[in-house]
Simulated assay, not measured.
Amino acid sequence: MITLNWLYVLAGLMFAAFAVLSALDRRNAKRFGNAAFWGLMALSLLGGSYIGDLANGLLVLGLAGLAGFGAIGRGDPDTTSGAEREAYSKRLGNRLFLPALIIPATALIGTLAYTYTPLGQYGLIEPRRETYVLLGLGVLVAVLVIFLWLRPPALAPLQEGRRMIDSIGWAAVLPQMLAALGVVFAAAGVGTVIGDATRAIIPDGSIFLTVLVYALGMVLFTMIMGNAFAAFPVMAAAIGVPLLINSYGGSPAVIGAIGMLAGFCGTLMTPMAANFNLVPAALLEMKDENGVIKAQVWTAIPLLAANIALIYFLGFIWTY
């Protein structure tokens, strides 16, 4: 049976290759810092289940130290030249995007086939992990197609991957860390503390004020943790479930779904959501690394106001 651990191994081997190629890149003054950073990432994916909690914690501190002290920097590996890329572009046009489309197509078609045909009866893939496994398979198929079609140098996919991951830098691992932070906050009882403070400040029966604090809390914690999925357990435990649902009888579907949308307004306004806001700026080589955030603020604020109104009216007023 193919399990999720196979994907960890695949990703770990990729990061291990990045580490080796970084160490061999003599043109990068920070090659050993890059090698250490991506090597630790490889270790976490390949051996995280075996090295124990303490070692994993030290590994995370190592990643934070390397990034915090500026030990990593962008490499510029040799793959194809600018002239070669331009020639490919002129000759193939939009067909160059076909390998990228193979990945989601494999995941979608494969999941539907595995779910709705007898193929799923063979138990080839770990239950509820089919889409993840097929997404990884799509990546391998896309790489194979690239080699058969374009015949790039053998290390070109890894070198291009290293170039891109170096451009993103430490922000590439931020989503995983922030998601873990959300679990830690929830386990530490932060939600209970916020809930007690909310009850002490807001008068009993003030539904709109409670909705307002809930939505603003989702935004604030999302801005801190960079991910609404990480903020949701905290605010749901603090306000969403005990006050809005249990005490005031609000609609769980509305409070949960639109509460998440309120959190995503915070995603639009924070550098902590690096995969949405800093990574595009880095890949596009924008002069202002916060340019994406500045452009999104004027969408996020009215969207937040709309979400607050929707939670209040759909969750409470129109349900009576």
Rank of each mutant, 00 (worst) to 15 (best):
A67P: 07
L98M: 08
F208N: 07
P104T: 03
V139L: 12
A36P: 04
V213M: 02
A188K: 13
R27M: 08
T115C: 06
L13W: 10
E160R: 08
Q296R: 14
N246F: 06
R27L: 10
V184I: 14
D76S: 15
G73D: 15
A42E: 01
L124S: 13
I103A: 08
S44E: 08
E289G: 04
Y8E: 10
A64T: 06
Q296L: 14
G62V: 01
W318I: 02
F18C: 12
A231L: 00
I308D: 07
T111G: 09
V297W: 06
T192S: 15
G256Q: 11
P242H: 02
A231E: 00
L137P: 04
I2A: 15
V254N: 10
I109C: 12
A309N: 04
L209I: 02
A281H: 05
M225C: 00
R162E: 11
P152V: 03
A11K: 13
L209N: 07
N34T: 02
L119D: 13
L108G: 05
V241D: 11
A262S: 14
M225R: 00
A172M: 11
A228E: 04
G291Q: 04
A156F: 10
I72N: 06
A67D: 05
G250P: 09
E160W: 08
A171G: 11
L243D: 09
P127G: 11
G240A: 05
Y8R: 14
L4N: 13
V184C: 06
G136D: 02
P153N: 05
A309I: 06
E126Q: 14
L63V: 04
M235S: 05
A172C: 07
L61Y: 05
R31M: 06
R26L: 15
M225H: 01
G191L: 03
A200V: 01
I255Y: 05
T270V: 01
D76A: 15
A87G: 00
M260G: 03
F97V: 00
F15T: 08
A187F: 07
G62A: 03
G62D: 12
V190K: 02
L63R: 06
F208P: 06
A200Q: 13
I194S: 00
M286Q: 15
E126L: 09
M14G: 11
A171Q: 12
L310T: 13
G110L: 02
G259Q: 06
S206L: 05
A253H: 12
F15I: 01
A105E: 11
A197N: 06
M1Q: 13
F32T: 15
T210W: 02
F37E: 09
